[in-house]
Design a protein around this nucleic acid. Structure first.
Lengths: 150, 150
DNA sequence: AAGCTTAAAGCGAATCTTTATTAATAAGCG
DNA sequence: CGCTTATTAATAAAGATTCGCTTTAAGCTT
């Protein structure tokens, strides 16, 4: 069975909510899914512009909540004064390990986090919906670099 | 052995970095440590103002990075368009479980996260410095409320 | 204790991100 | 094809954070 494309998923989401599938939205989504990289609004905007496509930044801001609601995108972390996002459709759930020196990001997942969730449900009576584990450290290169400096 | 006060810790941090211990900084820190609650810049600013103490908001913004660097404060999450903080000195490390309906926050910690950190060090060669697990869900009250609505 | 150096404060302007407004456009249904 | 109305671009507005500049005051040094 063929997996649905992100555009199909988004179309269905729109139909369910009586919203419209526009050229602009299609172009933005295509760009978001064109690379695996994380992105922020400004670089996404500039990338689209560079291709000669004219889309206003406000349209990106308006689209993002819909993509998040449709589980196609998630916000990853707030840094440098603005939010960073990534597309998640078709990927396993994962968390992020970031180097505080150079910004390098590794993705990982760990089954123990599900266990933690289960414990929390039991202990606090919450219905758990999501978790986000953000780990910071020094990548191998930066460790080496700092060792030499000291 | 008596634990050092947060002010002492901050003093030492300042000395190490040849920075100055000012009236303003002392008053801001005292206010931050006066309650266990999470805080944001604006409410902290207003609370201080209400006590008749005049401190500019910029001074708070300038102080926060120092407090974070000195491990007295950490940023907890970005919400409602701005960052939220908490003082951490004298507390065990903990993570946050938040209700997406009412905003209620439970704190917890789990030894398995240390295990995850160890695995990450081994697997990616990073030196791990910190982790932050943010779990979202529905608290017992809101689960009940939503059940009745449906 | 006074003098000196310079970090830090206050203030307001500037910047940056994100949201709201509004008139014009176009999706998509009948 | 025409109608309804969601969506767009553009711009203004709002809110958070930072910057620049002048004045104040920590905290050495003598």
């Amino acid at each position: 069975m063929q997996k649905k494309s992100e555009l199909q998923v988004f179309r269905e989401y729109l139909q369910k909510n009586r919203l419209r599938y526009t050229q602009e939205r299609e172009q933005i989504i295509k760009e978001i899914f064109a690379t695996h990289d994380h992105f922020d609004v400004d670089t996404l905007y500039l990338t689209i512009r560079q291709k000669g496509i004219h889309i206003s930044k406000a349209s990106i801001y308006r689209l993002l909540p819909l993509l998040i609601e449709a589980d196609l995108v998630q916000d990853v972390f707030f840094e440098d004064g603005h939010m960073h996002y990534e597309h998640i459709y078709g990927h396993e759930h994962h968390c992020h390990l970031r180097c505080i020196e150079c910004g390098k990001i590794e993705e990982f997942s760990d089954p123990r986090l599900k266990d933690v969730e289960r414990d929390l449900e039991e202990r606090f009576g919450f219905k758990i919906l999501s978790h986000k584990l953000d780990v910071k450290g020094l990548c191998p290169d930066c460790r080496e670099k700092l060792k030499k400096m000291a």
